[in-house]
Design a protein around this nucleic acid. Structure first.
Lengths: 170, 170
DNA sequence: GGATCATTGAGCAGATTGCTCACATCGGAG
DNA sequence: CTCCGATGTGAGCAATCTGCTCAATGATCC
């Protein structure tokens, strides 16, 4: 993650259609360099993909909510988490889910077509017997839409990943 | 959002490098159609962009946490929300933030380089005087990574957005 | 029937990609 | 100090793709 990598990520995030050749021109480096850097960034997992970003709102799901689920503690261990995870994975409206610190909790982000529809989605989620309790918060407004880029640029001084210092600007 | 749109989104999400021409071949439609559909999908806001997806983990921020912030109720109104929103926006580690139902609450997703570093980030966040109380949950494991695509495909029967029925399969 | 819109197939110039080579640099290893 | 591996560079080439335009066809709506 040297400076060129950062500028590259910044550029492609800002103008995704710039292309390899365009980027090489913009950043004043050889085309092969851009290609190699991108390949390495993908290989290292920094760039996870080039899929288009989709908007749940535009797809007809303007309501976002976060569910905190309390999972029944199985005496056997964590069978509960995985089972519930699988359950959630089968519900399209569940866009994200994490296990969290606390009493075996799960945090899930769900969307729905309306507040009424949200009830349906919640019911779907709660249909699993391993879920003991749940609480819901509805997202009213988005202060900060999902972003990652600031990490890249604000990074400049820090150690940044397990960056083997690259051989370019010494 | 007819079936072609869905297949298009599915295809480009799965194989982003397929390109317009490739997609037209794969879906057995004219190149111009693919181009027009993509343009319309972007225009309608369904596709919000083509930026590469970045991984905070790979960038050196493997720790994710969710902060629930309680905002001091200003007598004047909601000056608190926007002010805090701005405050958060200036912190690169805050990847997302929503106001939520409840007592003027804010839900923020933050990342950090380590659990120790998380303390620093939290301190940064709490530095704002309008924040009364906060609670933190750390994401231990990701059951479901962020996804939107299921909404598209699972949608098949439903009304889907404000879809004017398109003129193709009647 | 007539108007409107989406789709199709074709064509064309220009730009881009994927790939390969040879060469210059740089830093670390021996 | 010298060699080696990795990286960056500039060049070149064939194949492909993109952006754009046009005319024709089919379907829907009024």
């Amino acid at each position: 993650m040297d400076d060129l990598d950062r500028r590259l990520l910044d550029l492609f995030s800002t103008e995704p259609h710039i292309g390899v050749l365009g980027a090489s021109r913009r950043l004043q480096v050889a085309r092969g360099t851009v290609q190699a850097r991108l390949d390495r960034l993908e290989g290292r997992g920094v760039i996870t993909g080039w899929a288009p970003s989709l908007s749940p709102e535009a797809l007809g799901y303007p309501v976002t909510a976060f569910l905190t689920l309390e999972i029944r503690q199985d005496p056997d261990g964590d069978g509960g988490h995985d089972a519930v995870g699988e359950h959630l994975r089968a519900i399209p409206e569940v866009l994200e889910a994490h296990t969290t610190t606390g009493t075996g909790d799960l945090l899930a982000r769900v969307v729905a077509r309306s507040n009424t529809d949200l009830q349906r989605v919640i019911d779907l989620v709660l249909r699993h017997t391993a879920i003991q309790r749940s609480s819901t918060v509805i997202a009213l407004a988005t202060q900060i839409p999902h972003r990652v880029l600031p990490l890249v640029t604000a990074d400049a001084g820090a150690a940044g990943a397990q960056a083997q210092p690259r051989a370019s600007e010494s």
